[in-house]
């Protein structure tokens, strides 16, 4: 299919069930909330080696936060509740507790006991007996004395079902064209609520395939989309494509991932062939590994 001169391949992105949670981090200024959010969601691009995938969902105005201060909302995704809990615990302890002036709240509705993600519940022990708990409006908060005052932290958050691994592959004539297109698409997709793009800047260049010729490598470079190999028989790239970039999408529901996919497609198609983008495709594993399939042709704007 050719839209505005851009090839839209009739294929689908294959995504997986995950567990996710949202934290709201506030601070005295938006800048310090952002510092905390950046650190807490850093090194969280792929569950393959980071434990979780996460990102800043959006920035929050003071009216939107529980304590009336500016903040950011963060989404964390992992393969299961317990690994998610571990990741949140360490990131909360090392990146948010430590950051001046912050407070941290759960950003999801109260859930079941088996979905519990401990926050202050574990972190309170840092208070060494001087911590104090308060129940406000049915939710429990911990107040832990720290050197700049008090770290206010909700007792726990809850995991919710989520979808991870939605993606778009942008095929462009040149590297800069691919990068500019990816940037524009990522910006458009980030505006969709309930999703994050976990890779640096939202964009990943090292798309991977399952397996490798080497033992012990679960994944390896997606050689079919590597332009330097486009003369080889396995290549899926047309001759004019010189650079490919991928945008990976994690969202709280399949609909959120689909909405982000549509937003990305819309942006790319609107920019047109003149932007140097040759076409758009998506990555999948033959449909056997992930339950969620996002067909590009069905998600066109």
């Amino acid at each position: 299919m050719l839209l505005n001169g851009i090839h839209i391949e009739n294929t689908y992105a294959e995504a997986f069930d995950m567990k996710a949670t949202r934290l709201i981090v506030t601070a005295d200024t938006l800048a310090w909330a952002r510092h905390a959010g950046m650190a807490a969601t850093g090194f969280a691009t792929s569950v393959i080696a980071c434990g979780c995938e996460s990102g800043i969902e959006r920035e929050l105005a003071p009216e939107e936060t529980p304590d009336g201060r500016p903040g950011v909302s963060l989404l964390f995704f992992a393969t299961g509740r317990s690994v998610l809990g571990k990741q949140v615990e360490t990131r909360l302890g090392q990146c948010i507790l430590t950051c001046p002036g912050t407070a941290c709240f759960s950003g999801v509705p109260r859930g079941a006991k088996e979905d519990l993600i401990p926050m202050g519940r574990k972190l309170r022990y840092f208070g060494d007996g001087q911590q104090m708990s308060k129940l406000v409006g049915g939710r429990r908060y911990w107040r832990i004395p720290v050197m700049d005052g008090e770290f206010l932290c909700e007792e726990s958050s809850w995991s919710v079902p989520a979808v991870g691994g939605g993606n778009l592959l942008i095929l462009a004539d040149a590297r800069m064209a691919a990068l500019e297109a990816a940037e524009a698409a990522a910006d458009a997709m980030r505006a969709v609520p309930n999703v994050v793009l976990p890779f640096p800047g939202g964009v990943v260049r090292s798309g991977s395939k399952v397996g490798a010729k080497y033992k012990g490598m679960p994944a390896s470079t997606n050689d079919a989309y590597c332009p330097t190999l486009r003369g080889l028989p396995r290549s899926r790239l047309p001759a004019e494509v010189e650079s490919v970039l991928e945008i990976v999408i994690d969202g709280l529901t399949a609909a959120d991932v689909a909405a982000a996919t549509t937003a990305g497609l819309k942006c790319l198609i609107e920019r047109g062939r003149g932007s140097g983008v040759w076409g758009v495709t998506a990555g999948n594993y033959g449909g056997k590994l992930g339950r969620h399939h996002f067909h590009l042709h069905e998600l066109l704007p």
Partner: peptide, 16 residues
């Protein structure tokens, strides 16, 4: 004297 974010949280709750 201390600046306590908790007080804002509580006041927010009272406003509801």
């Amino acid at each position: 004297l201390n600046q306590l974010p908790f007080l804002s949280l509580l006041d927010n709750h009272l406003s509801e």
